[in-house]
Computed example of a mutant assay.
Amino acid sequence: MTSISASARIHPSSVIEDGAVIGDNVTIGPFCYVGPKVVLGEGTELLAHAVVTGRTTIGAYGKIFSNAVIGGDPQSVHHTGEETTLDVGDHCTMREGVTINCGTVEGGGRTVVGNHNLFLANSHVAHDCQLGSHIILSNNVMLAGHVKIDDRAILGGGCAVHQFTRIGRQAFIGGLSACSYDLIPYGMLNGNPGLLGGLNVVGMTRAGIDRATIHRVRKAYKALFDEEGAIREKASAIRDEFADCKEAMEVLDFIAADSDRALSSPFRGKS
């Protein structure tokens, strides 16, 4: 049975399917569609022609703009109609034309989006992606399936991310870039093919990381990428040297983790 809070404001032209849960102070504009297995958290707002479908939960104070489709079936040839989910956290904004798909059974059945994320117009989050919080996807960003993005990463307009790729915390990807391999925390990637071009020092500074720490992370970066040899072996060799620097260890732990993709570097993809 549908549960609609008495404080919700719903335009009469919108369709709310039986079974939907509409929280306190939700606003639903004209010509919207809310599916029967959708939960809209307190204070969420749907602008005209927004669609929320599938087994989808939207946290508190989300804002979904016109022509966005949130919770649609995964775009996977392996999906045969199984019931999977999409969970979106609090204070997420999805601008015009954004699409975020539910998971697939093969990928664990769940797409997850954290809190305070901003998805600009026509960006796409595919099935089974796992996104942290305070992430920005600029216009027309394309995430393939199973992508994992850690907190505070920023992806520039029109960039594309290969399936199963990991993007570390506070990484930055330039507009129109192709991210085909894992991108370390604080890394900057540009171009097609995407090349690692140093550290996101501006973002680190804005996040309150002090100059001395930035220099330590830069030293670790140079040891990893300015010297010949296998990156994972070098990362293991310098762990003791940087054990006192949380941010540098975050980079080394990211490199050491199991992954389906190789690591982005300043050289990979160059002819």
Results as ranks from 00 to 15, higher is better:
Ile4Arg: 03
Ser5Phe: 12
Ser5Ile: 15
Ala6Trp: 09
Ile10Pro: 15
His11Val: 08
Ser14Thr: 09
Val15Met: 09
Glu17Arg: 08
Gly19Ser: 04
Ala20Val: 13
Asp24Gly: 05
Asn25Gln: 04
Val26Thr: 01
Pro30Asp: 06
Tyr33Val: 03
Val34Thr: 08
Glu45Asn: 11
Val52Pro: 07
Val52Asp: 03
Arg55Met: 14
Arg55Trp: 10
Ile58Arg: 02
Ala60Cys: 14
Lys63Cys: 14
Ile64Ser: 07
Phe65Cys: 15
Ser66Ala: 15
Asn67Ser: 06
Pro74Cys: 00
His78Tyr: 09
His78Gln: 10
Thr80Cys: 14
Glu82Ser: 00
Thr85His: 06
Leu86Lys: 00
His91Arg: 12
His91Met: 15
Arg95Thr: 12
Arg95Leu: 05
Glu96Ser: 09
Glu96Phe: 12
Val98Phe: 01
Thr104Asp: 01
Arg110Glu: 08
Val112Asn: 13
Val113Asp: 13
Asn117Tyr: 14
Leu118Tyr: 12
Leu118Lys: 14
Phe119Trp: 06
Leu120Asp: 00
Ala121Ser: 06
Ala121Leu: 04
His124Glu: 01
His124Ser: 02
Asp128Gly: 04
Gln130Leu: 15
Leu131Pro: 02
Ser133Tyr: 04
Ile135Ser: 00
Leu137Asp: 03
Asn139Gly: 03
Val141Gly: 04
Met142Pro: 14
Met142Ser: 11
Leu143Gln: 00
Leu143His: 00
Ala144Cys: 01
His146Trp: 01
Gly157Asn: 03
Cys159Trp: 08
Ala160Leu: 13
Val161Ser: 02
His162Ile: 07
Gln163Asp: 08
Thr165Glu: 07
Gln170Val: 05
Ala171Phe: 10
Ala171Ser: 06
Phe172Asn: 08
Gly174His: 07
Ala178Met: 11
Ser180Leu: 11
Tyr181Asp: 13
Pro185Ile: 01
Tyr186Ser: 07
Gly187Gln: 06
Leu189Glu: 02
Asn190Ile: 14
Leu195Lys: 13
Gly198Lys: 04
Met204Phe: 09
Met204Thr: 09
Thr205Arg: 07
Thr205Pro: 10
Thr205Tyr: 09
Asp210Val: 15
Arg211Met: 09
Ala212Tyr: 14
Ala212His: 14
Arg218Asn: 11
Lys219Ala: 15
Lys222Asp: 15
Lys222Trp: 13
Arg232Tyr: 14
Glu233Thr: 03
Lys234Arg: 11
Ala237Ser: 11
Arg239Cys: 05
Glu241Pro: 12
Phe242Trp: 02
Asp244Arg: 11
Asp244Trp: 02
Asp244Val: 08
Glu247Thr: 06
Glu247Gln: 12
Ala248Tyr: 00
Met249Ser: 05
Glu250Trp: 05
Leu252Cys: 04
Ala257Gly: 07
Ala257Trp: 06
Asp258Met: 09
Ala262Gly: 05
Ser264Glu: 13
